[in-house]
Design a binder for these strands. Structure first.
Lengths: 202, 202
DNA sequence: TTTCCAACAAACCACTTGGTCTGTTAATAT
DNA sequence: ATATTAACAGACCAAGTGGTTTGTTGGAAA
């Protein structure tokens, strides 16, 4: 029985996941519109029939990539940064580590959420709402964790505003540094961002 | 002689400017790749022959829009903000005025420089270099004007870093707020940015 | 063993895109 | 008046796009 399952020559869920993974990569690299279905097909080594068996159209594929790949990836990335005893240091270390570990290719590709927001938010309502939800989730995650240590922080802090500010700056830096082909600009902005974050403390 | 000039039924420079203006608007609204030449043609009420008489191809049209429309517009927008006695207040008032005067449509369209950077910097070298130059110009403009009043500012300031930080945050906020259809997010981030800028003073 | 359908394969289609090519006309220099 | 060329007009084209349709096959249930 087990062998039977393993030896399936057709595993619908597996091909679906393969499509999602490769589509996520392509969309990250080239954006949604510039991503060609035929490229996805050839990289997946499947036919058009297979793709359209699993997804109604390109847009639905895009939504699935957002919900099943980007969203969990995003939350898994940010959560450990703020759900610690000291979220201030958590965020700073998170940003510093990122700016150190990032390759130039990462810089060029940018943040998937920021990319899609920039490209699709004003074009497609489905994407817009999904992005908005994601941003609100992220904002709440950061702001509530900052609020937990509010006694260590300055009194004039608007937590929601500060959280949006942090994310905006992060996205801005990842956009800014796309034009230079190195990490210098990115690191500069991240440096300043860490200074700003640490200055939130009393 | 004057009448002759005015009464030209064909004014090459005028049609060229018309193309540039409409192309700039289309690129701003839809991005470079999503901008269709046929749409430009119909909005300009010209033929394909006319367009290709003035520009070698779509890319060259894009470069011309960047150099002849976006760049001067951009410099003319930022210059008055920093070339004043008090650039700190100049920047804050600039940002505040912008967030107040902006319509929702402006929010959705975003900043042309940020848009193109995000879309084209990693795709086309010609765009990348032009964007990089523009960013360096802007950075120098801001940092030198901040440096002029350095005696009023804190001692630990890295002027180039701070300037990039400011621009990155501005661009990040314009990207972030595309997903919400109102100015709230934009204003929040701009508020926090003004606080940050004012805190640069001693 | 047969039946049935999910899971594909692949030809086909309408449509749009950037770009070319050939022809025409307005204006100017001679 | 004529020749010349800049400034167009518009038909045409190959390539690529997302999407549809028809056909095939593997595998599990009856």
């Amino acid at each position: 029985m087990l062998i039977k399952v393993v030896c399936y020559m057709r595993d619908a869920e597996q091909t679906r996941q393969k499509i999602l993974a490769i589509a996520a990569d392509e969309i990250h690299k080239h954006g949604f519109n510039a991503t060609s279905l035929s490229v996805i097909l050839s990289k997946c080594e499947i036919s058009k029939g297979a793709l359209y068996h699993h997804f109604a159209n390109k847009l639905e594929l895009g939504y699935a990539v957002f919900e099943e790949i980007y969203t969990p990836m995003f939350l898994a990335t940010w959560q450990p940064a703020v759900e610690v005893e000291d979220p201030i240091e958590g965020l700073c270390q998170f940003f510093t580590a990122m700016s150190e570990n990032m390759t130039c290719e990462d810089i060029i590709c940018g943040c998937p959420l920021n990319n899609l927001c920039q490209e699709m938010a004003s074009v497609d309502e489905g994407f817009r709402l999904r992005i908005l939800t994601m941003q609100q989730q992220l904002n709440q995650m950061i702001s509530t964790n900052l609020q937990k240590v509010s006694q260590q922080l300055r009194n004039d802090i608007d937590f929601s505003q500060v959280s949006y500010f942090i994310v905006a700056t992060f996205h801005g830096s990842s956009s800014l540094s796309k034009s230079s082909l190195n990490k210098e600009l990115f690191q500069k902005v991240i440096n300043e961002l860490c200074q700003y974050i640490r200055a939130l403390k009393k």
